[in-house]
Amino acid sequence: MNDSPVVRTSASSQTGHRFRYYDFVMAAFVTVLLLSNVIGAAKPTFITISGEQWIYGAGILFFPLGYVIGDILTEVYGYARARRVIWAGFAALLFMAFMSWVVVSLPPAEGWEGQAAYESVFGQVPRIVAASIVAFWAGEFVNSYVMARMKVWTQGKALWSRTIGSTVVGQGVDSLIFYPLAFWGIWEPAVVFTVMATNWLLKVLWEAVLTPVTYLVVGWLKRREGVDIYDEDTDFTPFSTST
């Protein structure tokens, strides 16, 4: 399949246009979002630095990939289509939380001995689930908004400044919402702020490390789709799913 010439265009001129790879990027976003919450969220692990163990949640290795894909969505397809994907992810998280609650609550069949392990993995504290969903929603929309606005401000130059800058703000909002909502009153305030700052920093650094990959994917998608979209006249309300 030959690449198309890349044409600069406004987001509004692409309303209703069907892109070749948009659905695949959406599927990747939702997949990473769900799996990072299901598989990685419940397991603490550690890394040894200078002989000292640093404990962190395993999900941090993959959850930031959602922000990377979110950056790619906004950069390639514009804010409106990224907004649609964020709502899809939000709905998927709600369904996952509901399904987990129902399945864990069902009585186990006689002779099945996996209920305790199942509850350990899939049982969720409602407060933490609610905090996670709200933080995701707010953080992703802020991330996409900053990404789209910075693209216009920079005239499409210095992609790295947009990906890292939007992550600094978006992950900051995510962390500021999630950790106090989930753990205030359970952990000591100093622990809440320490974990919040540490995880925010790790996520931003992870985004910076993945910047070369973002460049490759963004360049490839733009050539295949044939457009470079700018949100110059976009309605940035989050409460819509129109493109």
Rank of each mutant, 00 (worst) to 15 (best):
M1C: 06
N2A: 12
N2L: 10
D3C: 04
V6A: 05
V6Q: 05
V7R: 15
R8E: 14
T9C: 13
A11V: 08
S13F: 08
Q14I: 06
H17Y: 12
F19G: 02
Y21Q: 09
Y22P: 01
Y22K: 06
F24C: 05
A27H: 03
V30E: 04
V32M: 12
L33K: 03
I39C: 10
G40W: 05
G40S: 11
A41F: 14
A41P: 00
A41I: 08
A42V: 12
I49F: 14
I49S: 05
S50Q: 12
F63Q: 00
F63V: 00
F63R: 01
Y67M: 11
V68A: 12
V68G: 12
G70Y: 01
D71G: 15
L73Y: 07
E75F: 05
Y79H: 06
Y79F: 15
R81A: 10
R81Q: 10
A82D: 02
R84M: 12
R84I: 02
I86T: 08
A91K: 02
A92G: 07
A92P: 02
M96Q: 15
A97G: 09
A97I: 11
F98H: 04
F98N: 07
M99P: 00
M99H: 03
V103R: 04
S105C: 02
S105P: 00
P107L: 11
P107V: 08
E110P: 04
E110A: 15
G111A: 04
W112K: 08
G114P: 02
A116K: 13
A117V: 13
E119V: 11
S120C: 00
S120T: 13
G123E: 12
P126Y: 09
I128K: 09
I128S: 10
A130K: 01
S132T: 13
V134N: 02
V134G: 00
A138Q: 08
N143A: 03
Y145P: 00
V146R: 03
M147H: 09
M150G: 06
K151D: 09
V152Y: 05
W153I: 13
Q155I: 00
K157A: 14
L159D: 08
R162I: 07
T163H: 06
T163I: 14
I164K: 02
G165E: 07
S166N: 03
V169D: 03
Q171G: 13
D174R: 04
D174I: 01
S175D: 09
L176H: 07
I177K: 08
F178V: 11
P180C: 11
A182N: 06
F183G: 03
F183Q: 08
W184Y: 13
I186G: 01
F193C: 04
F193H: 07
F193R: 11
T194V: 03
T198R: 11
T198Y: 08
L205H: 05
L205N: 07
W206H: 13
E207L: 02
L210A: 14
T211L: 14
V213G: 14
Y215K: 10
L216N: 05
V217N: 06
V217E: 03
V218A: 11
L221R: 09
G226I: 07
D228P: 05
D228I: 05
F236L: 10
S240T: 15
T243D: 14
